[in-house]
Design a protein around this nucleic acid. Structure first.
Lengths: 239, 239
DNA sequence: ACGGCTGATTTGTATGATAAATTGACGTTG
DNA sequence: CAACGTCAATTTATCATACAAATCAGCCGT
């Protein structure tokens, strides 16, 4: 319970039901018990339960109608890009398949963002990226490097001026982080991608969108190759 | 009230408050009145109001704490990719600037999706795309053409096998549709993009990702150019 | 001057009652 | 016999009220 930081009662219910839906314990089309009995089962009042149901409804997971009951909506109605929904999926599907999908999203977003940033960056935004890069270069340990690395990418995203892209990135990134941390500690080579980032930075400085796109593509691809080798390595170790 | 189809009481409140936040009437950091007075203002019970607040909280727009009150969260915490939040923004900012951002997202997603679909499509998925294309080619009027066009893109997205991409597309697409419909009626040339779609379809049939990416890029770019010309034309007409 | 305590305020939760919506069965009628 | 309208039962939707928990501000004691 501490992990999800579900301090309030209803947020605990949200997490519980949300997870059960996402994991497939409750499948689309299923109608869940009526509110009164469900409230008893969860050991909360009907008020708290209903607030939780409203939250799940806002995320597209369920739909309530009088007399019919509350039923799980088809998956294509879910807000898969909601931070909570995504994190529930990350918890329940630590499969390589799902990681691949997240990485695919990252591979789509970041090169496009780099190109866009190269087109539209201001001088101040470039300076902020330079600052983040310098902090990466000077990072003494993996943790501070990771922090600077994140700042580099976030600053670049901001330079695109498209808040939709920023939002998409932050959601995908935070989901990926739940997997990355596993292999972050073994990062004896945590600065291996520094040259890649420099190429990106220079392309954005020179305002060359296609160069920035390619450089960021290489950066992400390399990062993923590294993650993959770390994954197979840990698989071997555990096997 | 009919437009948003907010039949239930609290969804009306959600829409009201959500719009006021998104439009900037209530700015990040602002604390809104305490629940009791707010309930009176909205002419609903505190229960209904609280359920609405929970929904807005689930979308990242607000945050409530005892004694402190309920305040608007900074914009980077908002779920900008939530369908409701996006539609509220569409209503309140019909600016070209925001349309451009949506189009930029589309220009990022679709070529990447086309490439991915070319890699992973099954024969059944290709057949479904072919069917949608045939319906586009045979469409007698703009409405059925639009329906088939949407089916074409959705089928392609499904062929990527990445439900995150599907979700992103459907959100962006439905937001764009609120603008597109304006110029949809004047589509005397509603089949102008048929050749483009054929190139995409063939590339996916031949499983050539880069060809599919380029073809879809051209398709989207052409579609946007068409929209832009329609926009300036209507501007002239209204001026 | 500083630190802990107390009280006031606001959200969080609980309880019980009533309204509204929708389905399914029942009865009526052509 | 079929078709249609009506009514009752069930479930969510809303309301009103009360109490619990959290938290900040100011007071008080040292």
């Amino acid at each position: 319970m501490r992990a999800g930081n579900a301090r309030s009662l209803h947020s605990h219910v949200v997490r519980e039901l949300g997870t059960r839906i996402v994991v497939g314990d409750l499948q689309p089309g299923d109608v869940l018990p009526r509110e009164e009995t469900l409230a008893e089962t969860m050991e909360v009042s009907r008020t708290a339960l209903r607030e939780a149901l409203k939250v799940l409804s806002a995320k597209g997971l369920i739909e309530a109608r009088p007399k019919i009951g509350t039923r799980v909506r088809p998956m294509d109605a879910w807000n898969l890009l909601d931070a909570d929904v995504l994190s529930w999926r990350c918890e329940s599907m630590p499969t390589d398949d799902f990681v691949d999908k997240l990485v695919e999203m990252r591979e789509i977003i970041e090169p496009a963002a780099a190109a866009s940033a190269a087109k539209r960056r201001s001088d101040a935004q470039l300076a902020a990226m330079q600052d983040a890069y310098d902090r990466m270069a000077a990072a003494p340990d993996p943790d501070t490097w990771a922090e600077a690395d994140l700042a580099f990418h976030q600053t670049m995203l901001k330079a695109t001026g498209n808040e939709l892209m920023i939002s998409l990135f932050s959601v995908v990134e935070s989901a990926l982080r739940t997997f990355f941390v596993l292999s972050a500690n073994n990062a004896s080579n945590f600065a291996y991608s520094l040259p890649h980032h420099l190429v990106v930075l220079e392309a954005i400085r020179e305002q060359q969108p296609e160069a920035a796109r390619k450089a960021m593509h290489d950066t992400v691809a390399d990062s993923y190759a590294n993650l993959r080798s770390a994954r197979t390595a840990s698989d071997k170790k555990s096997a």
